[in-house]
Write a protein that binds this DNA or RNA. Structure first.
Lengths: 219, 219
DNA sequence: TAGATTGTTAATCGATTAACAATC
DNA sequence: TAGATTGTTAATCGATTAACAATC
């Protein structure tokens, strides 16, 4: 045990923290690798990968080097192997259960979006505070009260929440979601909620995106 | 005229290019300023602004300094004035006409999203290649063929496209959109299209966002 | 072996932040 | 005037990239 623990320590010496910006690029690599597989391409080098993603080859190699040595000099990367490694790193070999909080117009559109399941993200519970909605089904999913969130999270091993509630309620809803032990939140409300450092939140806000585009149109 | 033109030149000497990352933060400032107005707060300093957005006060002052001097020492910024200045900078005092390309499930959800209009973005045309859809109306909007895009763009002075077509068609659709003179694209397809440098594209992809969250859940 | 491409170091570039004079 | 906060410079921090030895 002493030995094992030493080996483990050695392996971690000077192991750099991986910059967030690197982690955010990995899913893009996964997507391109998947498309290469459909194209029946078995080996890829950093140059081609870079071309597909408009990223320099050096950056791709540097990004990958945070996690290991996956390529062969003079040759490149096995598409299959690199894909599996990245899925492993990102935790994409698991199935992830997701709760939707807010079953209004936008929430229902999210429920009916078919793109989550094929990538292993399963909307398995739905929450709303509207008594008229609670007990109803949308896309085969029963709407529950937020009072049931904690037990739903435990029962279904939920680790991700997608939040689509009105702006005025977003902060308090997210506070409750975090109290239930959720540490990953995808927020569709047009606001920047405050969350503790251990919680990862990503905001999806098309209007904000449009508003920085218009800058380039007038300047 | 010679003088005028000289003054103009002087004003631009050493004028720094504004980093993209700064421009992307400005809409957030706009949003917070609007909420301060609803709260009837008339003056704000960089500290409060920073607290609301989890940004350092220095960064906010630095960001604003690319565009002018909007504050008063010892006091802060007039909420109203700063909001107007930022709207001016971002081009948010105009109404922007937008075309939706792709009227499938996701496209219809986008059409029915009520959040664009209040901020001056108007979905004014809809395009699809499905003959069964062309001629139909969704949310009061007639679906047209992509062959009509060019004339629609000119007729309605459209400068932004929202693209929600299947992944396989995204690149070719975006190529055509760009041919019609569109320079700002909000892309909902889960792919990274290649665009010329003068075109600004933003990708909205919830699955990619989820996939970088799971990294933190397993690491 | 010769050629190609990785993995990695060191240099460069760019963004953030600390510090403070200017000034309201 | 004293206190507060801006605007800006210079230092720091972090991310990208150029260059190249290692090696397939």
């Amino acid at each position: 045990m002493g030995n094992l623990s030493n080996r483990d320590t050695d392996r971690h010496i000077d192991r750099m923290a991986v910059p967030e910006v690197v982690i955010n690029r990995l899913p893009q690599y996964v997507r391109v690798l998947k498309s290469l597989i459909s194209d029946e391409i078995q080996v890829v080098n950093s140059q081609l990968l870079g071309k597909k993603l408009q990223i320099t080859p050096t950056q791709i190699r540097k990004d990958l080097s945070y996690f290991g040595r996956f390529g062969k000099q003079g040759r490149g990367y096995s598409v299959n192997n690199l894909l599996e490694e990245l899925k492993q790193i990102l935790g994409l070999n698991y199935e992830w259960n997701v709760v939707l909080v807010g079953v209004g117009r936008l929430g229902r559109a999210i429920l009916s979006y078919p793109g989550f399941n094929p990538d292993g993200f399963h909307l398995i519970a739905a929450i709303d505070n509207n008594p008229d909605l609670i007990g109803q089904e949308f896309n085969g999913l029963l709407v529950s009260s937020i009072d049931d969130l904690s037990s739903l999270v435990m029962k279904h091993n939920i680790s991700i929440a997608i939040v689509s509630v009105p702006t005025t309620q977003t902060q308090q809803v997210i506070d409750r979601v975090i109290e239930c032990g959720i540490e990953s939140i995808l927020n569709y409300a047009p606001t920047t909620p405050q969350v503790p450092t251990h919680v990862k939140i990503t905001n999806i806000d098309p209007v904000i995106s449009l508003q920085s585009m218009t800058y380039h149109l007038v300047n």
